[in-house]
């Protein structure tokens, strides 16, 4: 297999250019699918036969929760790539994921709590799914705190990458918590064998909302990572040329 694309992606000017081209595409597609998902979820989808209109929190809760774990997986993968191949761009991407991931973990917890109150009768329960998601919030905050505490970027990259990789153990725990333990949280709706347990009128807006969140995440990570690359490479010649400064 030809791996040149991989090494090219690790070149900061190349990454900077490609990311700049991808951002508007991700942002516009996120906006379009987001609006479609919102209309579908809040207006077109029928009420649930058990939860009535209250279930509509699903259209923000599930995408936020999915994104919170996806952002962690992206962060850990990028951190691992950065650690193994000493790729500065990968570390920049990893560092860019943390804040967004933390905010979406927080969002998943709060919207879940707001959904739990009317349906379970409580805002919070030390349930395996909820607790493991909370642990992930602390992992994100620990990662950000660790990076912030180390001045030397290369050392911060390595130390935080190790933390991110250790925290990966929490991802399968979050995912399978509803199977492994007797959880108050409902089981899998989408990722299960056979058909998803939702009619298309409810499912399609959910998938659109998830797509919107993922594209939104990609756009924000790329914006942040471009800034991060500029910061790391600030003395490089390509930046002076790129910014049009006389050299």
């Amino acid at each position: 297999m030809d791996w040149t694309w991989f090494h090219r992606f690790g070149s900061p000017p190349h990454f900077y250019r490609i990311a700049g081209k991808l951002i508007p595409w991700c942002a516009w597609l996120a906006a379009i699918s987001g609006v479609a998902g919102l209309i579908g979820g809040l207006v077109l989808a029928p009420p649930d036969y058990q939860q009535g209109e209250g279930y509509r929190i699903i259209y923000v809760h599930v995408p936020a929760a999915v994104l919170s774990t996806m952002a962690y997986a992206t962060m850990a993968t990028a951190a691992g790539v950065g650690l193994i191949w000493r790729m500065n761009v990968a570390h920049a991407v990893a560092a860019s994921c943390a804040g967004i991931g933390a905010s979406f973990t927080f969002l998943a917890l709060v919207t879940g709590s707001l959904w739990g109150r009317p349906m379970w009768g409580t805002y919070w329960q030390w349930d395996p799914r909820l607790t493991s998601e909370l642990v992930m919030l602390f992992l994100y905050l620990g990662y950000m705190g660790l990076r912030g505490a180390i001045d030397d970027t290369a050392r911060a990259d390595r130390a935080s990458a190790v933390l991110a990789l250790v925290g990966v153990i929490n991802l399968p725990i979050i995912h399978y918590s509803v199977d492994w333990w007797n959880s108050l949280h409902q089981g899998h709706t989408l990722l299960k064998f056979g058909k998803p347990s939702m009619p298309p009128s409810m499912l399609v807006p959910l998938l659109l909302a998830m797509l919107a969140f993922v594209l939104y995440f990609a756009a924000i990570v790329l914006v942040r990572a471009r800034g991060e690359v500029l910061r790391r490479e600030r003395n490089a010649r390509w930046i002076a040329e790129l910014l049009g400064a006389p050299s």
Binding site: R224, R231, A240
Partner: peptide
Amino acid sequence: NVTFAQRSAQRARMDALRRAQSAA
């Protein structure tokens, strides 16, 4: 998230531009 990301990217850009100009 949009606001913070844009602000941080903008700051990095300004900083890089300043350095490039002072180096030149």
